[in-house]
Design a protein around this nucleic acid. Structure first.
Lengths: 194, 194
DNA sequence: GTCTATAACGAGATAGAC
DNA sequence: GTCTATCTCGTTATAGAC
């Protein structure tokens, strides 16, 4: 395990970074080629069309995000704080959530990418709803109504907060909004010791 | 008043629609020209560069949005419900908030557009914080902490919810999340009579 | 698997006639 | 103000040699 990455992987790595910073319509094969010092033609060997590349980008992102979620441990409150921190880490590296980015570009995306995008949000929602449920049962979370609805509110809030924080070039704006969102669940700020 | 719109206005109207559906990088002068049945060269007479056009688009959007906000009337709870309905109306016409859209494209936008974008969000935040404050004083709103922070949470939630609703091609997803957000303020759903 | 070369198209933008 | 014509460049994509 942890082998030397092949060309396809390195393409996905660079393209992913570009996509998270500039959006799917904001980068080109030329950008990737320049970064990897190979030619555009070589890229097409690995990903015949940009739609193929886009689909692979989301699939990889979903897989990695899911792995990060599955690795989160602790009390329900701490798991949720660490979940928020995943977003924060993306932001401080000057990136946006890839799927939040692509969601904005939704109407210009090829069909296969749209489906892959929904898959990401569905998996995210499922994980979040499950952990909210657990937190309500035995983690001190307080909210009324469906956990799925609450998961959707949190996701919307976090994605929107990333968008706004980037527009103001101020990651702290994200942190503040994220803390307010958690406060709605009665999850105290990580700065206060619980 | 209510004069026949000149060419510049018609350009902004069409370009605005395209921008709200496909993003700033998702439409071209050719698209506008086709819709208005004039040539691309004519467009450049009115807006020399696309950056100029983009800046004018945000300025106009800000102005119109502000006018819509100032026209909202009723109890604090009803004003807030009508505020949410402004977003909803955009969504059901198959559009996204122009500035939410541009926020996603932030890193690819020309500098003048970035400044204009922040101006929009600042004005929106100011209006919202003011009305939240009023609602807390004499409208039954319940929340802790700063009204500005709460305004930012609401804006993030609403923008994010629009993004997600569009990805699932389901405006009801927005409505549900918006109601959850208002519920956090103790603003009851508009479906229940208060 | 990577290269050179090029096709085929669309983008933003300009010159200059009317 | 709007047009025709054109420029220059960037885009995705392909053919075929190595």
């Amino acid at each position: 395990m942890d082998e030397v990455p092949g060309t396809s992987d390195r393409i996905l790595e660079v393209a992913g970074q570009l996509a998270q910073r500039r959006g799917f319509n904001g980068f080109s094969y030329a950008d990737i080629a320049a970064a990897l010092k190979i030619t555009k033609a070589s890229l097409h060997y690995h990903f015949a069309t940009k739609a193929d590349l886009g689909r692979a980008l989301i699939a990889r992102y979903t897989e990695r995000f899911q792995a990060a979620l599955d690795a989160l441990e602790g009390t329900p409150a701490n798991i949720l704080r660490r979940y928020v921190k995943l977003y924060e880490d993306v932001l401080v590296r000057d990136r946006m959530c890839m799927c939040g980015m692509f969601a904005a570009e939704y109407s210009t995306l090829p069909g296969p990418m749209r489906n892959e995008l929904r898959r990401f949000f569905n998996k995210n929602e499922e994980w979040l709803a499950r952990h909210l449920e657990q937190g309500r049962t035995n983690g001190g979370f307080e909210y009324e109504g469906s956990s799925v609805e609450m998961a959707r509110m949190l996701t919307a809030g976090l994605e929107g907060a990333m968008l706004l924080a980037r527009s103001f070039e101020d990651p702290k704006r994200f942190t503040a909004t994220a803390e307010r969102l958690l406060a709605e669940l009665n999850v105290p700020s990580s700065r206060k010791r619980s």
